[in-house]
C-alpha cells in the first residue's frame, strides 16, 4: 500500500514537471511566433527613409521620424521628472519615515496606485496638466502623465533595493561617526544603485509602451513638425502603430509592424541595459 502511494507521488511529480515545462516553453514559443511574424512582415520597411520621413498618406513614403523623436523626448523628460522624486520618496519612506498609521496609509496608497489602469492617469492629466495648468497636449504634459504612472513602480522598486542593503553596512557607517544623511549617501545608495537603476529602467520601458493615457491627453495627432522643445505637440510610437493598424490600406499595416520592431528594439535595449547594470553592480558591491 505504502509502495503504491510512493508510485502515485512519483507520477504526480513527473506530471507536474512536464506541466511546468510545457507552460514555460509555450510562453517562449508564443513570443517566438510573434517576433517571427512581425519581423517577416515589417523587416523590409526598415530602411533609412522609414526613420527620417514625416507621416504621409502614402504608406511607402510615410516614416516614423516624428513619433520616434516624441518617444525619445518622452523617455528623457519622464526620467528627469519621475526618477528624482521617486527615489527621494522611497528614501524617505524606507529610511526616515516612522512606522505609524500615516506611513501605512501612504504605503497602501502607493501599492494601490501601481495597480490603477493607465487610462485613469490620462483622465487625471487631461484635467490637471492639459486644462488647469494650461500645458496643452505638449511633451511636458505627456511626460508628467507618464511620470505619475511610473512613480509607484520607481518607489516600490527603490524601496526593495534599499531594503536589501544589509544592516551591517549602515551600522559600520554609523560606527565611523557618519550622520544619517552621510550614511545614506555614501553607503546605502551606492550599494542599492544596481537595484534602483534596474527598477527605474524597467519603469521607463513600461512608460514608452503606454498608449491610452497619451491618447486621452490628445497625442493622437498628425503633425508635420518635429518636436523641438517641451511645449511642442508630439506623438509617440505606440500611438503611431495604433493609428496605422486601423487604416484600410495594407501598406500601413506593414508600416505598423516595422514600427513595432523599432519599439521592441528600444524596449529590449533598455531591458538589456538594466540586466547589464544589475550584473555589474552585483559583482562590484561586496559585503
Amino acid at each position: 500500500m505504502n509502495n503504491h502511494q510512493i508510485t502515485i507521488n512519483r507520477w504526480k511529480d513527473k506530471i507536474f514537471y512536464w506541466y511546468g515545462l510545457i507552460c514555460t516553453v509555450s510562453g517562449v514559443l508564443i513570443l517566438a511566433v510573434f517576433l517571427y511574424s512581425i519581423i517577416i512582415e515589417g523587416w523590409d520597411r526598415l530602411n533609412w527613409q522609414f526613420f527620417t520621413s514625416l507621416p504621409s498618406r502614402r504608406p511607402s513614403s510615410a516614416g516614423i521620424l516624428v513619433p520616434l523623436l516624441g518617444t525619445l523626448w518622452i523617455m528623457i523628460l519622464t526620467t528627469i521628472i519621475a526618477v528624482p522624486i521617486g527615489i527621494a520618496a522611497a528614501i524617505y519612506l524606507e529610511e526616515y519615515g516612522k512606522k505609524n498609521k500615516f506611513a501605512e496609509f501612504i504605503e497602501v496608497n502607493i501599492a494601490n496606485l501601481a495597480g490603477v489602469p493607465s487610462i485613469i492617469y490620462g483622465l487625471l492629466a487631461l484635467e490637471i496638466f492639459v486644462r488647469i495648468m494650461g500645458l496643452g497636449r505638449s511633451l511636458l504634459s505627456g511626460a508628467l502623465t507618464l511620470s505619475l504612472l511610473i512613480l509607484p513602480i520607481v518607489i516600490v522598486s527603490t524601496r526593495e533595493a534599499l531594503k536589501s542593503v544589509p544592516k551591517t553596512i549602515r551600522e559600520a557607517s554609523y560606527a565611523l561617526g557618519a550622520t544619517k544623511w552621510k550614511t545614506i549617501w555614501n553607503a546605502v545608495l551606492p550599494s542599492a544603485a544596481g537595484g534602483i537603476l534596474t527598477g527605474v529602467i524597467l519603469a521607463i520601458s513600461r512608460a514608452i509602451g503606454e498608449t491610452a493615457p497619451l491618447v486621452v491627453i490628445g497625442a493622437m495627432l498628425y503633425i508635420t513638425t518635429i518636436p523641438t522643445h517641451p511645449l511642442d505637440d508630439f506623438s509617440v510610437l505606440p500611438i503611431q502603430i495604433y493609428n496605422w493598424l486601423s487604416r484600410p490600406q495594407k501598406g500601413f499595416i506593414e508600416n505598423a509592424t516595422a514600427a513595432i520592431i523599432v519599439l521592441l528594439a528600444i524596449t529590449f535595449i533598455l531591458n538589456g541595459i538594466a540586466i547589464y547594470l544589475r550584473n555589474k553592480w552585483q559583482s562590484k558591491v561586496k559585503w
Binding site: 497636449r137 490628445g218 493622437m220 495627432l221 498628425y222 503633425i223 508635420t224 505637440d233 493609428n243
Partner: peptide, 8 residues
C-alpha cells in the same frame, strides 16, 4: 505653417 490634425 504648423498643422496639427488630431482624431478624437
Amino acid at each position: 505653417v504648423k498643422v496639427a490634425v488630431a482624431l478624437s
